[in-house]
């Protein structure tokens, strides 16, 4: 407390990890890997009614190189799986993955030869949002949970 007192009221003290986490959680640049029905709800979340921009994740980037949040929006088939892996690998660290809807999470009610039973069998996932498709509110809730997770992480820099 000694340093804080000597700095007076114009400065605050915090841990570096917490400060970086705070910056990172409010400047998420998403890459929407949108494939299926869920992308309709992704559009709803992104547009004015639900407006994901209020939570600091407003700008979708259409290149994985510029994104740090991979949103996997919809069913991933075995034909598409290698593409998803490649996109994930192209993203720079630190990066997070949000599994948008049950198809991405577990395959949903598509249990068959064509569908990957959950993207976590091919890439790591940070947060799962349930629903088929999830309501926009559920996605925002998922995003806030992810932000809490980012804030609490040990930051690499």
């Amino acid at each position: 407390m000694g340093i804080a007192n000597s700095l007076g009221r114009d400065a605050i003290t915090t841990r570096l990890d917490a400060a970086i986490g705070w910056a990172r959680k409010y400047s998420l640049f998403q890459y929407p890997f949108a494939t299926a029905c869920c992308s309709m709800e992704y559009m709803a979340v992104a547009c004015s009614h639900y407006d994901i921009d209020r939570f600091g994740a407003g700008l979708p980037r259409w290149s994985p190189r510029q994104a740090d949040l991979l949103m996997v929006v919809g069913t991933i088939s075995h034909k598409l799986a290698p593409v998803l892996c490649q996109v994930y690998e192209q993203m720079c660290d630190p990066k997070w993955v949000l599994s948008f809807g049950v198809c991405a999470t577990s395959g949903g009610f598509y249990d068959n030869y064509g569908t990957v039973q959950g993207i976590d069998s091919i890439i790591p996932v940070d947060i799962y949002v349930a629903g088929c498709p999830p309501r926009p509110e559920a996605v925002l809730d998922g995003l806030i949970k992810l932000q809490k997770k980012i804030q609490g992480e040990r930051q690499e820099y």
Partner: peptide, 28 residues
């Protein structure tokens, strides 16, 4: 084919009513 979710195969393993939710997700 990147979004082939096997609707027609699924339909052959569900009851007639059970197919209805799958039809939603054709043209969503």
């Amino acid at each position: 084919g990147y979004m082939h979710r096997c609707f027609e195969k699924e339909a052959e393993t569900h009851s007639y009513t059970g197919v209805i939710p799958y039809t939603d997700r054709l043209n969503y």
